[in-house]
Simulated scan of single mutants.
Amino acid sequence: MQLLDINKAQYRARLNVVIVACIAGLTASSLAISQTLIHLLPSESGSHFHWNALGVVVSAALLGITLLNLKTHPKMKEVVYVWELKHALNLIYRKNRQLLEHAKQGNAQAMLALQFSYDGSRQLWKLDDNTITMDSLHKSQTQLDIWAREYGVELDIRQYHSKILKAF
């Protein structure tokens, strides 16, 4: 995955549309499905929990399928990019301890993964207005820069790909 320049205002606007559409779609379809099931198959005990639960599950599945089908739509570009970035950062986060140990010993691939993580996190936090943890990110970046200079490693995140993580 490569980091892209994203228009923050456009991303936020499109994300808000997706969120509202998901909430409205999930609410309307789960109610429609559960009420239809209750009407067609009423329970003598008066409890319709299983029909309501089934309505929510089916609606969630339909919503998931719809989002997967809309993933390639041009208006979903920024939202999908952020979803994929969060996934890529999560994969790195799971290996963070091992990456830090290897980076400390001069492993260029570990340093590259950490650099991608730091740059991606910085971009993500700016898009989401989550600047509270930028100080800790700056400290981590400073340490990585020290290791890169110490071992003579050039960190170009365009060279990063998720297969690097398999070594850790």
Rank of each mutant, 00 (worst) to 15 (best):
A60I: 02
N69C: 15
L63D: 01
I38A: 05
N16M: 08
A32R: 10
S47W: 15
A24V: 13
L37D: 00
L15H: 06
S29Y: 05
A28D: 10
A32T: 06
V20H: 15
E44N: 13
S29H: 11
P42V: 07
H39I: 08
W51K: 01
L54E: 04
F49E: 07
V17R: 14
H39K: 15
V18G: 04
I23W: 11
H50E: 10
A60R: 02
L67I: 02
C22S: 11
V57M: 10
L37S: 04
E44P: 06
N52T: 11
A13E: 12
T66I: 09
P42N: 11
H48S: 05
L67M: 03
G46R: 06
S45T: 09
N52K: 14
G25W: 04
L63A: 07
R12D: 01
L63F: 07
T72R: 10
S47M: 12
V17Q: 10
A28H: 13
W51A: 00
V17M: 10
S34D: 03
V18F: 10
L40N: 09
S43L: 15
V17C: 11
L41V: 06
T27S: 13
T27L: 15
S47Q: 15
I65Y: 13
L62A: 03
P42W: 07
R12V: 01
I19L: 06
R12P: 00
L63P: 00
V58A: 04
G64L: 04
N52Q: 15
I23T: 04
F49L: 07
A53Y: 15
V56G: 02
R12K: 11
L63Y: 10
P42Q: 06
S47A: 13
T66Y: 12
L68P: 05
N69S: 15
H48R: 04
P42F: 12
L68Y: 15
A61S: 12
S43A: 14
V18I: 09
F49R: 06
L26S: 07
L37Q: 02
T36A: 12
V20K: 13
V56Q: 04
A53C: 10
L37G: 00
L67T: 00
V57Q: 09
A28L: 15
T66R: 04
S47L: 14
I65W: 13
I65E: 10
K71D: 08
V20E: 10
V57D: 06
L15Q: 05
C22M: 06
A13G: 13
S30Y: 01
L37H: 05
I23Y: 12
L26M: 14
A21K: 08
E44H: 12
S47I: 10
V18W: 08
R12Q: 05
T66F: 13
G46I: 05
S29N: 11
L31C: 09
I38P: 01
V56I: 09
V58K: 01
P42R: 07
S34Q: 02
L63T: 01
G55N: 01
S30I: 00
L62Q: 01
L54A: 08
G55R: 00
I38F: 14
S29T: 08
S30G: 03
L68T: 08
N16P: 03
A21D: 05
N69G: 14
I19K: 08
Q35E: 06
L67R: 00
V18Y: 05
V57R: 10
G55F: 00
I19R: 08
L15G: 02
V57H: 14
H50M: 07
T72N: 12
L63I: 02
S30Q: 02
H48L: 05
